[in-house]
């Protein structure tokens, strides 16, 4: 009897944990989607998440309003992304090198600022968290209630953003331009639309969304900024993007899967029956990466945008 109760509680919690862990992944993956759909590779998602997380905490620390923190994270992510955009789109630099530079820069910058603002090396002071949203009607349903009843607002925003992104990319003229910039930029150019500006917007959007993901990590999931607190989540987001085949719902499903694997580790940790698996936690952590490699190796064909990674040089007209 008690076992069943525990099982129900644990299932609900596992669902909740899946949502919690996947939110930053999905947000950053959506960011990556906007950038890569326009044809700019963005491996700097990790850096943009970091800077988002930092700015969220810093802004909340100074204003004591976590929503301003979220805003600051979005802006900061966008600003860092605009550096990437300028380097890649305007100066036609190497997109992967620039992305790597963005990661290095963000890591150094946030750790440094941590020391400047709080005088500490590792973890900032605690700040006010985003209050959880309690949805009364569903919070009493056994499993679903635990999972969806009281979550951070950013979790719901993430779910909404997935739908919005799908709508924007596939159902609006702007979305068509985004797709064209990634698939066939010269056609877009011929139609009289500036490829550069579409790509710029795409990259900056990617920074904003990644910053949001970072903000979730920092002021909703935790309530402080820790040095390198994203610990590779930007790369997992990139994996989710590829595993999700460059579509918004694919990102959601892949992100949820990877989030579930994250949550599973802790389920193993607290259940004595599974404690023998503690040693093999590293293998669970490997699963997302292995899945992506297997997927790319041809179990399922993934189709990146055609013009991805190549700077667009306007052809000189006679």
């Amino acid at each position: 009897m008690q076992d069943i109760q525990t099982l129900v509680a644990l299932t609900g919690w596992l669902l909740k944990a899946t949502l919690m862990m996947s939110t930053p992944l999905v947000l950053a993956a959506l960011g990556g989607l906007f950038s890569e759909k326009t044809g700019i590779v963005n491996i700097g998602l990790e850096g943009m998440m970091l800077i988002g997380a930092f700015s969220a905490v810093a802004a909340t620390y100074f204003t004591d309003n976590p929503w301003l923190g979220v805003l600051a994270a979005v802006i900061a992510g966008g600003m860092l992304a605009s550096i990437h955009a300028i380097v890649c789109v305007k100066y036609k630099g190497n997109q992967i090198v620039s992305g790597a530079g963005i990661i290095l820069f963000a890591g150094g910058f946030t750790t440094l600022m941590l020391e400047v603002v709080w005088g500490v090396k590792g973890v900032s002071d605690s700040v006010t968290r985003l209050p959880n949203v309690v949805i009364e009607p569903i919070s009493d349903i056994p499993i679903l209630g635990v999972a969806l009843g009281a979550q951070s607002p950013l979790v719901y925003i993430m779910l909404i953003l997935v739908v919005v992104s799908w709508f924007v990319i596939y159902k609006t003229p702007f979305g068509l331009r985004i797709q064209a910039a990634g698939e066939d930029p010269s056609a877009l150019d011929a139609a009289g639309v500036s490829v550069s500006s579409v790509r710029m917007i795409g990259v900056v959007l990617s920074g904003c969304l990644s910053g949001l993901g970072g903000a979730y990590l920092a002021i909703s999931y935790a309530s402080e900024f820790g040095k390198m607190m994203t610990v590779g989540r930007g790369f997992i987001a990139l994996a989710a993007l590829i595993f999700g085949n460059w579509t918004p719902f694919g990102c959601l499903i892949a992100g949820a899967l990877f989030g579930f694997l994250d949550g599973l580790q802790f389920a193993i940790s607290i259940l004595p029956e599974f404690s023998f698996m503690l040693e093999y936690v590293n293998f669970i952590k490997m699963i997302p990466y292995v899945l992506v490699i297997v997927a790319l190796a041809g179990i399922r064909k993934s189709v990146p945008p055609k013009a991805i990674g190549t700077p667009y040089e306007k052809e000189a007209r006679g």
């Binding site: 525990t6 509680a9 644990l10 609900g12 919690w13 909740k16 944990a17 919690m20 862990m21 590792g122 973890v123 635990v146 990590l217 999931y221 935790a222 402080e224 820790g226 040095k227 607190m229 610990v231 994250d262 949550g263 802790f266 389920a267 940790s269 607290i270």
Partner: peptide
């Protein structure tokens, strides 16, 4: 790395209080 992994500790604590009682 566990010494600094605040997010991991957060979610573990959630399970300990919430799911396990």
């Amino acid at each position: 790395r566990a010494f600094t992994d605040i997010p991991a500790a957060t979610i573990l604590a959630d399970a300990l209080y919430n799911a396990q009682g």
